[in-house]
Design a protein around this nucleic acid. Structure first.
Lengths: 233, 233
DNA sequence: CGAACCCTTGAGATCCTTCAATCCATGTGG
DNA sequence: CCACATGGATTGAAGGATCTCAAGGGTTCG
């Protein structure tokens, strides 16, 4: 069973499936595919820790990871999630700095490790890839700037509504309008930047306003427009 | 006088003086220098506005600019400052998105406009430059992530202390330990992400604790270590 | 001199956090 | 199978940090 899963995953791990690598020549793709190492990681596993030196990055083929920083008193601040065909760890590899975040598996994942030399090789020799990667980083930087403004200026209520919208857009809803990502109240709080209790109180406020419905960790979106209005978007 | 200043600035505007361009070949440098257009901008001038499409970026050769986003009710959130040999506007050019910030001149500036084609040309054809630029963006992204965590978790007092430290590190002190950048209370508030009145109260608290001394917009650092401790760094 | 802009201070309101207690589901060892 | 530990979710109460509103003072500049 486990064996089958791995086999299956390794076959799927062709780098060319990730949009970032679409400009690779056949030769480059072969080279990179040969240099990468696929792996299966169970929920709860750490891929790298804040402060580590990392010598390569990872491409996600299956699963979800959370990328977070550890702040005051060990409180985590979730920076983003990574889902299939996204790449993690590239920031530290490219900047040559220590990892500024920790990456932890939230749902069993298949990742491919890509050594830094492979990444450097591509950046130096394939201008189109280089540009594609740069665009990715630039978009991320734009989102970070956006979030700085939000945290600095919006209330916790507005930010929570906004996060629910982001989660919907990034992970989608199932056929019953339930968010396709399962987070604890504490994790929600660690995205929004607030206390767990505040998230709980606001979620039940949203519920009594009929914007959402709650069943444990399942959050059903009932009134998307109202949430958008609430989020000041 | 004005004429002399411009002459002087144009001479100084050799792209090669900016560290980012250190890997350019002589030929590339000549090409880029020919394609760029230098300009003198007075305090208060806008270089580009949030939401604009911009077709090139600017290299700062003299002066200081503030880069900010406009949030709720028009309140500005300062994202960063740009000083000589730094580059602004590249994020939107590279990502192909609209400008996500506004750039405004705080001290009379000399900038060189670099059309996007020049930038693309370098990215595609000079791997070393590409990597250098990527490192720059990655460092910026790291700082943004850091700031998200700070805003989300630290108190206003801690953040104000931290900003004073950052300003000292980025702009330095004069021979009397006075910060070499002049900001209004409101601007300080718009970096920290708080109300102007809060900045005023906290600055005078820092003053009565003898961490700083204040004379209008001049802020003298008296006890750097205490500020660091206060900032939780 | 007035207008515009910035700085300062006070008072009250409010949002949010913290602390403490309870509940519930799950899993584990005896 | 029960007792107990663990981790998450919930609720209440109290306090504190910060914001908003309002008023007044100082400077600069046309």
């Amino acid at each position: 069973m486990r064996q089958t899963a791995i086999q299956h995953n390794i076959e799927d791990c062709n780098i060319i499936n990730a949009p970032l690598f679409k400009h690779l020549t056949g030769e480059e793709a072969d080279r990179v595919n040969a240099e990468k190492s696929p792996g299966f990681y169970k929920k709860g596993t750490y891929i790298y820790h804040e402060g580590n030196r990392i010598n390569g990055c990872y491409i996600v083929f299956k699963g979800i990871l959370k990328i977070y920083k550890t702040g005051i008193d060990g409180k985590e601040q979730i920076i983003r999630f990574a889902k299939p065909y996204e790449i993690i760890g590239f920031r530290s590899v490219l900047s040559g700095e220590l990892a500024c975040t920790t990456a932890k598996v939230m749902e069993d994942s298949t990742l491919c490790y890509l050594p830094q030399d492979s990444l450097y090789y591509l950046v130096k020799n394939n201008g189109a890839f280089s540009l594609e990667l740069m665009q990715l980083i630039c978009r991320e930087l734009g989102e970070a700037n956006e979030y700085i403004t939000d945290i600095a200026q919006k209330t916790v209520r507005e930010r929570l509504a906004e996060i629910l919208i982001h989660l919907k857009e990034n992970f989608g809803l199932d056929n019953e309008n339930v968010l396709q990502i399962s987070l604890t109240r504490e994790e929600l709080a660690n995205i929004v930047g607030t206390a767990t209790e505040s998230v709980i109180r606001l979620l039940s406020e949203f519920k009594s306003d009929h914007y959402i419905d709650i069943d444990g960790r399942k959050i059903k979106i009932l009134n998307f427009t109202a949430l958008q209005k609430l989020a000041n978007l």
